[in-house]
Design a protein around this nucleic acid. Structure first.
Lengths: 114, 114
DNA sequence: GCAATAGTTCGCCATATGGCAAACAATCTC
DNA sequence: GAGATTGTTTGCCATATGGCGAACTATTGC
């Protein structure tokens, strides 16, 4: 579940950049306009808009325009999907690690009486 | 915590590719050699090695060579770091959403008696 | 030692990415 | 409606990415 390959690609790709992660962190505190979002960064607006496009294409961020100002907001579902993929992997890993640990412990008890 | 910017960059970048995610999924079941890992994919070995290099550079995967065979294994710490970043964001988001929900509910109770 | 096996390195290519400046809308505000 | 504000589009550039084939370097096994 939540393994839409293409969307995982674009979600992780969107997260693989500090500027874009910072935008997400900012949007978590609430919606914001483009220039408001761009303000902390030392890059030009056109460049920043590319980052924003990556975020929107990934579905992590949505936006709507009212008048001349575009307001962006977080779309946490995709964030959850990305987290879920990792969580699933880790769950399998930990299941395996637990079984391994249980086996080793059992082994030690039986063979070494420790 | 776990916000080493550069390593998050490379970890998410490594995850932003279906081949590399598949390698991780495979390695969760246990270590494997390079050709074993490459076998399911319809790409050449040199290309596959580039993916492997991305995974190793990100710290998600480690490897060691014995004889002529390189054995790769998962390094779950970095996977956990990536997951943590998202989890932290979501925690903040949910905290905010909870407060918002509480506020709205309170508001409705007080103003509309519903 | 010769041949097969397992990886690695080297060029080469097309496309994507992330940056810029400059020009171009569109919409407020006075 | 003139001017400021807010985004957007358009070229341009350097570098990174993901793919290939070909050549090369170990090892292993007979």
């Amino acid at each position: 579940m939540a393994n839409n390959l293409a969307s995982l690609d674009s979600a992780f790709h969107a997260l693989a950049d500090p500027t874009r992660r910072a935008v997400i962190s900012r949007l978590i505190t609430g919606p914001a306009s483009v220039s408001e979002l761009a303000q902390p960064f030392a890059i030009g607006l056109p460049t920043f808009l590319k980052h924003l496009k990556v975020l929107e294409d990934s579905g992590l961020v949505g936006s709507g325009k009212t008048g001349r100002v575009r307001v962006c907001h977080l779309q946490p579902a995709r964030l959850a999907a990305a987290e879920s993929w990792i969580a699933e992997q880790r769950a399998i890993w930990e299941g395996r690690a637990d079984r391994l640990a249980a086996y080793v412990e059992n082994h030690i008890h039986k063979e070494q009486g420790q």
